[in-house]
Structure formats: structure tokens, C-alpha cells
């Protein structure tokens, strides 16, 4: 179906052990820390415009809920036994990104005075309909495409433009996930000049 060992893919490939180590030592990435740096001032600004802050917190919490579901989805994908190396390593790497997004979003919600939503105990994934590696990759690709659209729809409505920048940064990462998964499925990784 695809060959992740092609040179162009080597930089994206991650050994499973390395990925698991990353997932086990979750910290906010340098980029996320930088994005959140200075948010004390942001929080102070928001206290002066409470309604806008509340709206931003709602948007962030919605994104957080979706990120938590993505983490769980990749976990289900990794545990279903259908993914082989190197695809499994890729899934674990992407799961790690979603964990970083979730951590950054939760930290920002807290800084703005909100309460981060908690992950659900059960997401009811349609695991019984996943029969092959291709099924799992298609399921993941659909979620990633949806995530791109969701962040695209969130960027314009943040009252605070710094938060819009954070959302755009995450959007870029989700778009890369989607493209890589499409490539892995043997599809055109970048099917159009615009996303919607």
C-alpha cells in the first residue's frame, strides 16, 4: 500500500520505543510553551472583557474535547492489533501530538480562569467495523480532516488573536497528519490547494 521507509518519509518515521518514551514523558512542547508564554497578561486582559474570555474558553474547551477524543482514538487504533510497523509508530507519534495539543489547550483554559473539560470514559468508537490496517488509517484520516475543518472554523472567532495563532498552529499539525495518512493510504496526500 505504501512504503514509509522511502527517504522522503524517514524524517517522519519514529521508532515505537522512542514514541512511547515521548508519550510517557508528556510535557508541553517548546512551541506550545512559547505560544502560551505571556498568557498571564492575556488572562489579565481577558478579565477586563469577561464575555469575550468566556467565549474563548468555550471554544478552547470544545477543541480540548476533540483532542482528547483523538488521543483515545489513536490509543484504540494502536491496541486493535491491526497496525504494523512502521504505521504503528506513526500512530503513536500523532497521538503524542494530540496529547501535546490537549495539554496546551487545558493549560490555556485554566490560565483564562476556566475549567478544562475532562476526557470521557468511553467514546464508543466503531472498533467492530475496523477490519484492516486500511480501515484504521481511513478512520484516523477522517478524524484528522475533521480536525482541520474544526480549527479552520475556530481561528476566525477567537476574541484574542493570540489564541487564533495557537489554533492555526495546531491546524497546521493536523493538516500534516491528514496528508501523511492519505499518503499511507495510497491517496494524493494534498488533494487541493485549499482546505475547508
Amino acid at each position: 500500500m505504501f512504503d514509509l521507509d522511502k527517504p522522503s518519509f524517514l524524517s517522519a518515521k519514529l521508532g515505537r520505543r522512542q514514541a512511547l518514551q515521548r508519550a510517557a514523558h508528556l510535557t508541553l512542547s517548546g512551541a506550545a510553551v512559547a505560544l502560551l508564554a505571556g498568557k498571564d497578561a492575556l488572562a489579565a486582559d481577558h478579565s477586563a472583557m469577561k464575555g469575550s474570555a468566556e467565549q474563548d474558553v468555550r471554544i478552547l474547551n470544545t477543541a480540548l474535547g476533540a483532542e482528547q477524543e483523538a488521543v483515545a482514538a489513536y490509543q484504540a487504533g494502536a491496541e486493535c492489533g491491526l497496525l504494523r510497523k512502521p504505521t504503528l509508530g506513526l500512530a503513536v507519534q500523532f497521538q503524542g501530538h494530540h496529547k501535546e495539543h490537549a495539554d496546551a489547550l487545558a493549560a490555556t483554559v485554566s490560565k483564562l480562569g476556566g475549567t478544562p473539560v475532562a476526557p470521557k470514559r468511553d467514546y464508543g468508537f466503531p472498533v467492530s467495523s475496523l477490519k484492516s490496517e486500511k480501515d484504521v488509517l481511513q478512520f484516523a484520516a477522517g478524524l484528522e480532516k475533521g480536525a482541520v475543518s474544526a480549527y479552520l472554523g475556530a481561528v476566525p472567532i477567537f476574541a484574542d488573536r493570540e489564541l487564533a495563532k495557537v489554533a492555526a498552529s495546531i491546524l497546521g499539525d493536523e493538516a500534516m497528519h491528514w496528508a501523511v495518512l492519505r499518503y499511507a493510504l495510497g491517496e494524493n496526500p494534498v488533494p487541493s490547494a485549499f482546505v475547508s
Binding site: 474535547g65 476533540a66 477524543e69 478524524l143 480532516k145 475533521g146 475543518s149
Partner: peptide, 15 residues
Amino acid sequence: YERCIACHALKRNRT
């Protein structure tokens, strides 16, 4: 509808 599926599904509650 593919734009919606980060948060919605037909048959199950999600975000």
C-alpha cells in the same frame, strides 16, 4: 459533512 466529523457523528454523541 466531513467538516463536522471532528466533533459530530450521526449515531453517537461526541464533542
